[in-house]
């Protein structure tokens, strides 16, 4: 009977500890998930080498810094400086490569575009909406 009681207390203690621990991790995860990434205006980049740091959330687990090189108005290189462990699968580098590739032109509208099928279809669609 005493043995059962001890076992129960140990299980309860573990459960409480686990729950508390999980709460800690959960807060950290939440923060990481909701990290606001402000829109960078890629058209305004000035040439140079810049170091960027992220303090890494509540428990500093994700602290890291990188060096970004801008030349010709474009991001040409991103190098990890600290806090970044490439887990052997090159995924971090792939992520950086995507940033470099994806700095495509985010345009609002286009000057000199010939009349595209899309534009025509849009106008037709708008006309049909009114016709409904």
């Amino acid at each position: 009977m005493i043995g059962w009681l001890i076992a129960l207390v140990v299980v309860a203690a573990l459960a409480i500890a686990g729950w508390k621990g999980w709460r800690y991790i959960e807060r950290e995860h939440k923060e990481a998930r909701s990290l606001p990434l402000d829109a960078v205006d890629f058209s305004k980049l000035k040439d140079g080498t810049y170091t960027g740091e992220y303090e890494g959330g509540m428990y500093k687990w994700r602290a890291n810094s990188v060096r970004v090189t801008v030349s010709g108005g474009k991001v040409t290189q991103i190098e990890p400086l600290s806090g970044i462990e490439d887990q052997g699968d090159g995924k971090t580098q792939m992520l950086y490569d995507r940033v470099i590739q994806a700095q495509s032109l985010q345009v609002d509208t286009i000057s000199g575009a010939t009349l595209t099928a899309n534009a025509y279809l849009q106008a037709v669609e708008n006309a049909l909406l009114q016709a409904e």
């Binding site: 058209s43 305004k44 032109l105 985010q106 345009v107 000057s111 000199g112 575009a113 010939t114």
Partner: peptide, 9 residues
């Protein structure tokens, strides 16, 4: 607040 980005065909 950023300027308009007008693409050129």
């Amino acid at each position: 607040g950023f300027p308009w980005q007008v693409g050129i065909q």
